[in-house]
C-alpha cells in the first residue's frame, strides 16, 4: 500500500503545482490547498504508517501494550493543517478582494504595478 500512497502523494504534488501554474486566481488557491494536502500526507507516510492502533494509551494502562502509530507526525500534521487553514482562509478572502478591486480572476492581468517600473 505504501507504494500506492507514495504515488498518490506524487500525484497530489503534481496536481498542486499544475494548478498553481494556471492563470486563474481560484485555481491557484486550489493548487495551494492540494499541495498542502500532499505535504501532510507526506509527513504522515514518512513517519511510517500503522493500521488500526491509534496512539492512545489504553484506559487501563499507563503505557502502550502493543504496537502503536507514531504520534509525532500526527501532531505535526495537526499543526500544519490548522496553520494551512489560517493561510487558506486568508487566501480565499484575498481572492475575493482582489477580484473586487482588480476586477479579474486572471493573474496575467495583475501586472499594472510592473508597468510603471
Amino acid at each position: 500500500m505504501e507504494v500506492i500512497l507514495a504515488i498518490l502523494i506524487g500525484v497530489l504534488y503534481a496536481a498542486g503545482i499544475y494548478m498553481i501554474l494556471r492563470r486563474s486566481l481560484v485555481k491557484l488557491i486550489l493548487g495551494i490547498i492540494i499541495l498542502g494536502n500532499g505535504a501532510n500526507l507526506l509527513i504522515f507516510l514518512l513517519g511510517r504508517v500503522v493500521k488500526g492502533s491509534p496512539p492512545i494509551i489504553p484506559a487501563d494502562s499507563d503505557v502502550f501494550q502493543s504496537v502503536y502509530a507514531d504520534p509525532v507526525p500526527q501532531a505535526l500534521i495537526l499543526t500544519a493543517i490548522v496553520i494551512s487553514f489560517g493561510l487558506q482562509s486568508f487566501a480565499i478572502i484575498l481572492v475575493k478582494r482582489a477580484y473586487k478591486v482588480v476586477k479579474t480572476d486572471d493573474l496575467d492581468e495583475m501586472n499594472a504595478i510592473d508597468k510603471d517600473s
Binding site: 481560484v26 493500521k51 488500526g52 502509530a69 500526527q74 495537526l78 487553514f85 475575493k96 477580484y99 480572476d105
Partner: peptide, 29 residues
Amino acid sequence: IYSAPDLAMTQFSIDTLTVILFVLVLYKL
C-alpha cells in the same frame, strides 16, 4: 484507516469549513 482519529476529525472539519468559505466567496465570481 491508519490510526489517526484526531487527524481525521480535524481534517474533516477544516475541509468542510474551507469548502464553505470557498462557496461563500465563489458564488459572486
